[in-house]
Every structure is written in structure tokens, then in C-alpha cells.
Design a protein around this nucleic acid. Structure first.
Lengths: 224, 224
DNA sequence: CATAATAATTGAGCGCACTCAATTTTTGTG
DNA sequence: CACAAAAATTGAGTGCGCTCAATTATTATG
């Protein structure tokens, strides 16, 4: 089953190096092609979305730019909008990492959480219309693959917030009885609602910052 | 400007009674027609959405059922999805009213808030796919009219929650220093996040109930 | 290497949301 | 009532997301 034909070994040693020593079974040619095409589609979609905007970009354009047929795009994402998840998943994971690193430098939990969310907002603020489309899709995925990606993203964010809360417990800022995951989710819930309000133009950035601070502080009193 | 032609008075006294003694200037024939058509479109869309589902319903079907041309539908909602707001706005306002009435019967704030949200969930639970589509659209309105409707809805919900918090202050359950609107929004934020998780199948109804209770309780400690 | 089985890709075609120039309806005015 | 201006409605047309039968590429087997 895992036997590798000789010609494959040749290619592995000479042409295709990327990902050779990654975990798991050696990739078949099929999987290689899929990964490569997926990458091209993601790159093409990202470039077009950021340059022309989500609505103005057609799936045909994405297919052309990626060098695949129109139909192929839809084997990697069930809908045009699911492409948003595919395209920005990795980037958002990184942003969450950065946000966590920045947060850890602050002394107390409230500051930490605010820095955490402000880092994420700063990312979205670079392209508000796109962020709006992206956030919309985060709450309405079509395909199973994308659903998995969203799950992973949320796990990561909740996990990082939970770590911050846990450390705060160590410092005595938060009661030991406060459940970590629930606390993390409550914090995120507040951020999420206000981000939506901002992206939809119900409040401006300043109002957002103020509201966020106020309400996170309110919740923080409960955790203490 | 507000002069009413004689033939209008005739119609007002004989044919068209509904809304005659409502506030504001007497409706012109144009406005009457608009209101009437709007009503037919809303009724047609609601029937089709609930019977066939949102995706399976075409705007042409809605137009036919309402007795208008295809294009007319889009003068009342910019997109098919904005129709969701138009259709369910009034109903959701009523649900919020019912939720508030049910909540007031409970003794303490946590119970009240849980009853409040459970009433709203019960409404959504009647048709989960539709609720999912509706909730999605609440966070992504296209037209200005619908945006106004959403604003009104949120004002109503926040207002009712704020009333509950205010009463709780009177009973000494909540600190006088806790800002009403911010408290209301934080409570709603928690509900909103978990409702989304449930509608998207990340958690089942039981898990939803438990999470909601836990996290509302957490916040409640902060308000106290 | 030949051949069958399986998976991936293709792109023409379809259905539907939405547009907009033309038409009809309503209102304001003399 | 006649007529012009304004507003509302119409529905054929358009573009695009998405499908799926046909084709091509890859893998498994003797």
C-alpha cells in the first residue's frame, strides 16, 4: 500500500523537495497536485479579493489566475464564500498567535485581553469590507472542510484566551473557581458582537474601543 | 401639501379602513399601494420560506405569489436575503416582548435573563435552517431600510435587558455602578455567540443551555 | 508494459438573483 | 378636465455561481 514506485523516488530526490520530510506517509503524486493547486487557488483568490474586493471578484477570474478550470475551484471550496475561510484561515491563526504574544507582555488580564483583541481588530481594520465578508462567513460555513478550519481557528483563540485567564489565576487576579473555557468564550463573545457592530457601521472604531473596554471590565469583575 | 382630494376622502370612508386613524399624515394612494404590496410580498415570502426553505425559494416565486413583477420585490428589499429581515422583523419584536413578559415573572436576574433568551431560542428552534439564515442576515444587512429595522430590533432587545438589569439594581442584586446598556449588551453577546454555535451545529441544544447558564452566571458575578 | 479501476479536472450549460430602459400609475397644477 | 412631472412597476435581459457528464490523469494489478 505504501510502496513507492521507482520513478517516484527519482522525483522525490531530484525535483520535488518541498514537504519531503513532513510527518505522515509520503505524498502521492495526486496529493502533491492537490496541495499545489490548492495553494495556487488560495493565492489567486487572496490577491483578487484584496485587490478588487470580494464581490467584484468572479470565481472565473480566480480559476484563470490559478490556472485551473472554473469547476475545479469548487472542489476546494463548496461556495465562493467558503473560499474566504480557505484563504484567510492560516493568516488568522497567525494573527491569533501574534495577539497572544503581544498580550503576554501586559501585566494584568484586562490589559492583556484588550491587547489581544486590538491586535485582531488591527488586522481586520486593514480591509473593512473584506473583514465584514470574512466574519460573516465564519458564522455560516457551507463545506465540511471549511467547518473544520473554523473549528480549529476557534479552538486556537479560545485556547489562548484560556491561557491568559489561567495565568491570571496564578497571579490571583481571577478566582480559581472560574471555568477557563467558559471565561474565554465570554470574553470572545463580547469582542465578537462589537466587532460585528463596527464592521457593519453601527459604531465607529473609537466607540468600539470604549465599549469593548467597558464590557470586558464588567465581565472581569465577575471572574475575579 | 396635506390637502386631501375628495375622491380620497370617499375611499377613506368606505373602502379602506385599516390604519385610518394611525398617527402621521393621511396616506396618499401611492403610500397605500406601497404598504399593501409590501404586505403581500412579506406574506408571500414568509409562506414560501417556511414551507420550502429559504434557498429553495426563488424571488420569482415570491413575486408571483405576491402578484407583482419580479423586479418589484427588489424595491422593498435590496437582496433576497434582506427579505428575511423584512419578513421576520415584526415577529421578532413580538418575541422580544413575550420574552420580556415571561422573564419578569422570575425572581432574580439570572433566571430572568435565561428565561428571556430561552424564549427567543424556542422561537428559532421551530425552524433551525431558517433561523440560521435569518441570524446570518442580521449581521450583514444590505439595504438602508433593513438596517433601520435591525437597529430597531436591537434597541428593543437591549432596552428590555436593560430594564431587567435596572430592576435588579433596585433589588440590590446588581451594583448601582454597573452601566445598564453595557450590561445588556454583554448579556446579549453571550447569547448571540452560543446561538450561532448551535445554529451552525457546533453544539446541541443541551450543551447550549448549559453553556449559556454558566457564562451568564459568570458575567452576573461581575455585575453584582 | 498493458489494462482496469479510480480519482481529479474540465468547461459548456443552467438556473437564479438582480438590473434598467420602457411603460404605467399617481400626483400636482392651471 | 387636461396636461406635465414624478414615482412606481414591469419583465426581458444579463452576468455569475455552481453543476455534472465527459474527459484526462493517476494508481493499482497481473
Amino acid at each position: 500500500m505504501l510502496t513507492v514506485p521507482l520513478f517516484r523516488a527519482y522525483f522525490l530526490d531530484n525535483e520535488i523537495v518541498k514537504g519531503r520530510d513532513m510527518a505522515g506517509p509520503v505524498q502521492s503524486r495526486r496529493d502533491q497536485n492537490k496541495v499545489e493547486k490548492r495553494g495556487r487557488i488560495i493565492a489567486a483568490a487572496r490577491a483578487l479579493f484584496t485587490h478588487k474586493g470580494f464581490d467584484a471578484t468572479t470565481t472565473q477570474e480566480i480559476a484563470d489566475a490559478a490556472g485551473v478550470a472554473a469547476g475545479t475551484v469548487f472542489t476546494y471550496a463548496k461556495t465562493k464564500e467558503d473560499l474566504l475561510i480557505l484563504v484567510f484561515h492560516d493568516e488568522m491563526l497567525e494573527v491569533a498567535d501574534d495577539a497572544y504574544k503581544a498580550a503576554r507582555k501586559r501585566p494584568d488580564l484586562l490589559d492583556q485581553v484588550i491587547v489581544f483583541f486590538e491586535t485582531m481588530v488591527a488586522y481586520h481594520a486593514r480591509d473593512l469590507p473584506l473583514a465584514r465578508a470574512l466574519m460573516r462567513q465564519l458564522g455560516y460555513v457551507s463545506g465540511d472542510d471549511q467547518r473544520t478550519l473554523v473549528r480549529e481557528l476557534m479552538r486556537s483563540v479560545y485556547g489562548k484566551l484560556a491561557l491568559l485567564v489561567e495565568d491570571a489565576k496564578g497571579r490571583g487576579e481571577v478566582a480559581a473557581s472560574s471555568p477557563l473555557l467558559a471565561s474565554a468564550r465570554s470574553l470572545f463573545a463580547i469582542y465578537y458582537l462589537h466587532l460585528g457592530a463596527m464592521l457593519n457601521g453601527y459604531v465607529d472604531r473609537e466607540q468600539f474601543d470604549r465599549d469593548l473596554r467597558t464590557e470586558l471590565g464588567l465581565l472581569m469583575r465577575g471572574l475575579a
